[in-house]
């Protein structure tokens, strides 16, 4: 079967322009769908980066009572230093704590006026030998019960919550994305089918004079593929923008420092782009193949 290239180009572009509104509608739907799918992939990568980072480098902070005596403080210090599960500690004294506090509540004058250095608990920053969440949680629970300890905070709970949140987000977005993918597929299918319906007389003649099914089908399948590819290309562009936005958002304020490891690097973007392009191709080929099948039944 010799499919003439100029014939295919001519017919495909005729199909695409014949019903321009539908073509644009399906390209836009593919674009929006794949942009969302791409963002889902990025967010998923980011969440993975985030939890991986925290799971590796977890520290915890032991706050001592603000009115602790020197003896008690020394006891807490020794108990931390002697613990074989702890690699390194550093003491944050009153002045440093107050400096941090001023930084944290900058611009909130009532807080700054009413809180003095003496009101704040000093603390030990503790780095455990084994940074896994469970070990850290064990240490945290142990030091909470020690005398002179005001409070122990660790990122473990935050991580757990973050993970739970990102899992929830992932699942929700995945369902949403799947529904959108189905909508895009149906729209491409419908557009291709409309194009075939508009040309049913030609198709009838083609079949009567002995054109092969593939010959008839190729321009219509290409029509679907072109829609998928344009939508996919736009979505790839969007994924790059999305990465910029995520980075900008994280850089914007110190409040989001916690999310620093959430940032995605170029390999994550590559994964997202590959996913988007792959889905675009599969989506459009499958739906246009389905669309062209029924019409060609003899």
């Amino acid at each position: 079967m010799a499919v003439n290239a100029s014939y295919v180009v001519r017919e495909t572009s005729a199909n695409l322009t014949r019903n321009i509104t539908l073509t644009v509608a399906s390209i836009l739907t593919v674009f929006v769908t794949l942009a969302i799918v791409g963002t889902i992939v990025l967010v998923r990568q980011g969440a993975q980066n985030l939890t991986a980072r925290y799971q590796k480098g977890v520290e915890f902070i032991v706050y001592v009572d603000p009115d602790i005596s020197e003896d008690q403080l020394a006891q807490v210090r020794t108990s931390l230093e002697d613990n074989p599960g702890i690699r390194e500690i550093s003491y944050i004294d009153r002045a440093e704590t107050y400096a941090d506090f001023k930084e944290l509540f900058k611009g909130q004058d009532t807080m700054l006026e009413n809180v003095t250095a003496e009101d704040l608990p000093t603390s030990f920053r503790v780095k455990p030998v084994d940074p896994s969440v469970n070990t850290v949680q064990g240490l945290v629970n142990y030091y909470r019960k020690q005398p002179g300890v005001f409070q122990v905070t660790a990122a473990t709970e935050v991580i757990r919550q973050l993970k739970g949140m990102s899992d929830f987000l992932n699942q929700g977005l995945t369902v949403f994305g799947a529904l959108l993918l189905a909508a895009s597929a149906l729209l491409i299918l419908n557009t291709v089918r409309t194009a075939m319906f508009a040309r049913r007389r030609e198709i009838e003649v083609m079949k009567l004079v002995g054109a092969t099914n593939w010959f008839i089908r190729v321009p219509f399948m290409l029509e679907g593929l072109v829609q998928g590819l344009i939508g996919g290309a736009l979505a790839v562009g969007f994924v790059f923008l999305a990465q910029r936005w995520i980075d900008d958002l994280i850089d914007r304020g110190p409040a989001l420092d916690l999310l620093e490891p959430f940032s995605v690097d170029s390999s994550d973007v590559l994964v997202a782009c590959l996913a988007v392009s792959g889905i675009a191709i599969v989506l459009s080929v499958v739906s246009s193949a389905l669309a062209t099948r029924r019409f060609l039944d003899v």
């Binding site: 003439n4 004079v209 010959f215 008839i216």
Partner: peptide
């Protein structure tokens, strides 16, 4: 010409 074209005649 269409009848020849669609059966791949040169």
């Amino acid at each position: 010409a269409f009848a020849l074209e669609v059966i791949g005649r040169p």
